Computed example of a mutant assay.
Amino acid sequence: MKIGLVDCDSHNFPNLPLMKISSYHKSRGDMVEFASLGSHYERLYASKIFTESQEPELPGYDEIFRGGSGYDLENTLPYEMEHSYPDYSLYPALTKDTAFGFLTRGCPRKNHGFCITPQKDGCVSRKVADLQEFWRGQKRIILLDQNLLACSEKMELLEQLVDSHAQVEFNGGMDVRLLDEEILSALEKIKVKDYHFAWDDPRENLEEQFRLFRDAGLTAAGQCKVYVLTNYWSTMKEDLFRIYTLRNLGFMPFVMIYDKQKFVDSKGRWLLDVDLRYSEKQLRDFKICQHMQRWCGRINIIKSCPDFEKYEPYRRWMEKGCPVPRKILVDGR
């Protein structure tokens, strides 16, 4: 069969499902390539991870399969494809001496409605593979797991990472709430590239857990990024509490704005119809989050101005009356 692959995303990141699909079909003797216009394929596979990604113009085909969370949250690969060793030759520059994969799927954080993981992969973190399924001696391993530490077999999986002697990147981050001395001891033996965590829920005080990680000395706290969710369920006061607490502990807080792409374009400029979709209060709340993101997004700025209230762009915006796009009334309506 002649198989065509379509990667709809343009995020400079290899598409793992397409690599598995390619490996499966090549093992069956099929011809596999990235689809090109002007060609005809017996079977076409289109994959996208992000909903905003646009499907490109497609070549001719006899049948097509579309998959990935960018299409819906229910599609999955057949078992034989899912457990195929990825065809890293599809992305030689992006996968040079690097392995990509999932050891676990799912996350128990049911209240995190901003995340697709519970709906897509379930509310239980479960083991889905051993490391050898997608790693064969590469010097670098990028794990895509959503919450590996919540898996009951986490220690077995961490030992596999220890034994690999590879540099490991936890691309999905780690759950600071689940850290304990046993896990920290295992992490000490792993060559972790960067640690990053998240403090999403303002109703949880995670100060002691972050202090536990800092005191373990696995990395300098100032080199550890912590994502802080805003514009979802928190007030400005709750956002600043998390940011200031993390800064006092020596971590690097990074503000993540929920649904940011629905308010502004890639350059941070208001979308033309934003005033028709959101109230003035919602727009002002978003603008505050945007100022916070810019304020603590660069270490030199937050160090020179540790008090958000004194951040010059935010202070000027406040003095101008907090301007945001407003609906234009026509004929007094």
Rank of each mutant, 00 (worst) to 15 (best):
T95Q: 00
T95A: 07
E82Y: 09
Y91C: 09
D87K: 00
L94R: 02
Y85A: 06
D87Q: 04
P92G: 06
D97Q: 03
Y71S: 14
F65R: 14
G101A: 11
Y61G: 09
I64M: 09
I64S: 12
T95M: 00
G68M: 10
G68F: 06
M81K: 08
F100R: 01
F65C: 11
G68R: 10
N75M: 10
L90S: 14
T76S: 14
F100E: 04
A99G: 09
A99V: 12
I64Y: 00
D62L: 15
P92W: 07
S89E: 06
H83P: 03
D72C: 12
Y79I: 10
R66I: 14
G101M: 09
E80D: 14
D87F: 00
Y85V: 14
D87M: 09
T98R: 03
A99C: 06
I64D: 00
Y79H: 13
E82H: 01
E82N: 10
Y61C: 05
F100A: 05
S89W: 03
K96A: 13
A93F: 06
G67A: 10
S89F: 00
R66Q: 05
F65M: 08
Y88M: 01
G70D: 14
D62Q: 12
L77T: 06
E82A: 08
A93K: 09
L77R: 02
N75C: 14
F65N: 07
P59R: 14
Y91I: 09
N75W: 05
P92Y: 03
D87Y: 00
Y79Q: 12
P92T: 07
S69D: 12
K96L: 14
Y85R: 12
Y85C: 01
G60E: 13
F100D: 08
Y88E: 01
S84I: 06
N75I: 07
Y61V: 11
D97Y: 00
I64N: 03
F65D: 02
I64V: 11
G60C: 01
G70L: 13
L77S: 01
H83N: 15
E82R: 09
Y71R: 11
L94S: 10
G60Q: 09
E63I: 02
A93Q: 15
E80M: 05
E82M: 14
Y61A: 08
T98V: 07
T98K: 05
G70S: 13
